[in-house]
Every structure is written in C-alpha cells, then in structure tokens.
Amino acid sequence: MSSASNPAPGDKPGILVVMGVSGSGKSTVAACLAERLGWVFVDGDSFHSPEHVAKMRAGHPLDDDDRAPWLAAIGAWIDTRLQAREPGIVVCSALRRAYRDVLVRGRDAVRIVYLEGDRDLIDRRLALRRGHFMPAALLDTQFAILEPPGPEENAIAVGIEGPPEAIAATIAVRAGLEEGAQEPRNPA
C-alpha cells in the first residue's frame, strides 16, 4: 500500500497544480477539469493575504518574501488533501522553478500542469477581463520571471488556444486520468 505523498508505481496523480501567467486561463480550465474528474478545486488566489492583493491591485508585483507565506499555505492545502487521500486541483501561477519546488518537493502525488500561451493572446484576454485584482499592467513582470517547466519536472504542458473544455480533456488524458480516451485535437 502506498502513502499519500509517495504513491506506488502506476498510481495516478493526487493533486494537479495548474500554473501559468495571469490570464492564461488557469481558473477556468481548472474548474472544467475539476468538474470533469469530480475533484475538489481551489483557486490559489484565495490564499493571498489582503495586503498582497492590495499590493497587486495597485500595480506592484509581489516579491519572493511576499510569495513565501502564500506558497506555504498552498502547500499546506496540498498536504491536507494528500493525507486524506482525496484528489484535488489547485491553481497557482508558480512561475519560477523554486516556487514549483515548494509545492512538489517530497510530494510524489503532485503533478504540474503548465498552461502555455503567447503574450499577445494573453494580453488580449486580460484586456477583456473584469473584476480581477491582477492588472494587465503586471503581465510583463509575469513573463519576465516565467521559467517554463523543464523536462525533469515531468509537467504536462498544454497550449491555451482551444476552448477550456478541450484543454481540460487534454490534461485528463495526458495525466492518465481518463484511460482509453482519445486526446482531443485543437481546432486549426
């Protein structure tokens, strides 16, 4: 029998961390994926302190000292899910390798999902978004610190050009959570 943090070979991921820059569709795709799989979903933004939300709303990016308690809170949520052996999906920008290491290190049942898109597409999406604390003006800072996952991270990288439901289906197939399913094709 495997432990929650160290699954036996062949065990499916217990937690998916959906990452990417602001406006890449993390929350929308993660919600579709959670509904598809019947898993719990939490938006990592809910772990930000009011002070950090105000800082971002004012157009100031967070620094590593600001992010440390946020990442620790997300890690604690992950640990709670793993200890209960309950799968879940959490959204977290996790733009740097060091941030992803905080969420994944020592947790074999955690898998990163990277929503990958070009700056122009994401900029257009942000221009249409209303009511979010993260201003479009901070997109350049997000791309400046982005370190896409390397092969050793075993991340699932998915383009964001298609509809959220198709992206969620692709993730489910690539994560091995829907056996025998055909991976959907993105429309040209």
Rank of each mutant, 00 (worst) to 15 (best):
residue 121 L to H: 04
residue 37 L to H: 00
residue 120 D to V: 15
residue 184 P to Q: 02
residue 75 G to Y: 05
residue 75 G to S: 14
residue 13 P to G: 09
residue 29 V to K: 00
residue 148 P to N: 03
residue 28 T to A: 06
residue 109 A to M: 01
residue 88 G to H: 11
residue 152 E to D: 15
residue 76 A to T: 14
residue 151 P to T: 08
residue 48 H to M: 06
residue 107 R to M: 02
residue 163 P to C: 10
residue 31 A to P: 00
residue 20 G to P: 04
residue 86 E to N: 14
residue 9 P to E: 12
residue 151 P to C: 04
residue 98 A to F: 05
residue 5 S to C: 13
residue 84 A to C: 14
residue 128 L to Q: 15
residue 128 L to I: 07
residue 181 A to G: 05
residue 28 T to K: 03
residue 6 N to L: 15
residue 187 P to L: 11
residue 16 L to A: 04
residue 157 A to P: 13
residue 123 D to T: 15
residue 57 R to T: 14
residue 68 A to H: 09
residue 90 V to A: 14
residue 30 A to D: 03
residue 25 G to H: 02
residue 90 V to D: 09
residue 12 K to G: 08
residue 126 L to Y: 03
residue 70 W to P: 03
residue 171 I to L: 04
residue 97 R to K: 14
residue 7 P to Y: 08
residue 86 E to W: 07
residue 140 D to Q: 15
residue 73 A to Q: 12
residue 166 A to V: 14
residue 113 V to P: 00
residue 47 F to I: 04
residue 92 C to K: 08
residue 140 D to V: 12
residue 182 Q to K: 13
residue 5 S to G: 09
residue 92 C to Y: 07
residue 151 P to F: 05
residue 26 K to S: 02
residue 142 Q to V: 12
residue 26 K to H: 04
residue 49 S to E: 12
residue 135 P to R: 12
residue 113 V to I: 03
residue 67 R to A: 05
residue 73 A to Y: 05
residue 172 A to R: 10
residue 40 V to Q: 12
residue 87 P to Q: 11
residue 45 D to V: 02
residue 114 Y to Q: 02
residue 135 P to D: 13
residue 119 R to K: 15
residue 87 P to G: 13
residue 61 P to E: 02
residue 30 A to E: 02
residue 133 F to C: 05
residue 46 S to F: 04
residue 148 P to L: 06
residue 13 P to D: 09
residue 90 V to H: 08
residue 152 E to V: 08
residue 148 P to T: 10
residue 142 Q to D: 13
residue 11 D to C: 10
residue 164 P to E: 05
residue 48 H to K: 06
residue 61 P to G: 03
residue 163 P to F: 09
residue 131 G to S: 12
residue 25 G to W: 01
residue 78 I to E: 11
residue 91 V to S: 15
residue 78 I to P: 07
residue 92 C to H: 09
residue 176 G to R: 13
residue 164 P to Y: 03
residue 156 I to M: 04
residue 48 H to D: 10
residue 31 A to T: 03
residue 47 F to V: 07
residue 159 G to K: 05
residue 141 T to L: 13
residue 73 A to F: 01
residue 106 G to V: 03
residue 175 A to Y: 07
residue 52 H to D: 15
residue 79 D to N: 14
residue 177 L to F: 10
residue 2 S to K: 10
residue 129 R to L: 03
residue 104 V to R: 08
residue 69 P to M: 09
residue 176 G to E: 11
residue 17 V to E: 01
residue 102 V to A: 07
residue 70 W to N: 06
residue 24 S to E: 02
residue 71 L to V: 04
residue 96 R to F: 12
residue 24 S to R: 01
residue 185 R to E: 13
residue 94 A to D: 11
residue 181 A to R: 14
residue 23 G to P: 01
residue 11 D to S: 15
residue 153 E to T: 08
residue 78 I to S: 10
residue 26 K to Q: 07
residue 22 S to V: 11
residue 81 R to W: 12
residue 21 V to K: 03
